[in-house]
Amino acid sequence: MPIKVRIPTPLQKITNNQADVTVKSKNVRELIEDLNKSFPGIKERLCDEKGNLRRFINIYVNEEDIRFLKMDATPLKDGDEVSIIPAIAGG
């Protein structure tokens, strides 16, 4: 069973308006690379020049923020759900 990734509205332009995509990556670092292969440009929206996750975007594996797990080395397994959640400011 692959891993489901929830793409937030601001990034759906890159994923051809798909709100969910599936990957088969072993960890979060691989997931970002795999996403970038399918949807070129998504990596630079998620990560800065040094490859660190931007400070206004979080990645969750199931309900857990990877910053409190093993960052981009956080392992993924079949059936996990990954959510990319950016800060939003509209009011």
Binding site: P10, F56, N58, A87, A89, G90
Partner: peptide, 18 residues
């Protein structure tokens, strides 16, 4: 704690634009 820093201006559209 959730989002340590705001995005730089221009990177995220506001309601008016979005």
């Amino acid at each position: 704690c959730l989002f340590p820093e705001p995005p730089p201006p221009g990177l995220v559209p506001s309601c008016q634009e979005a």
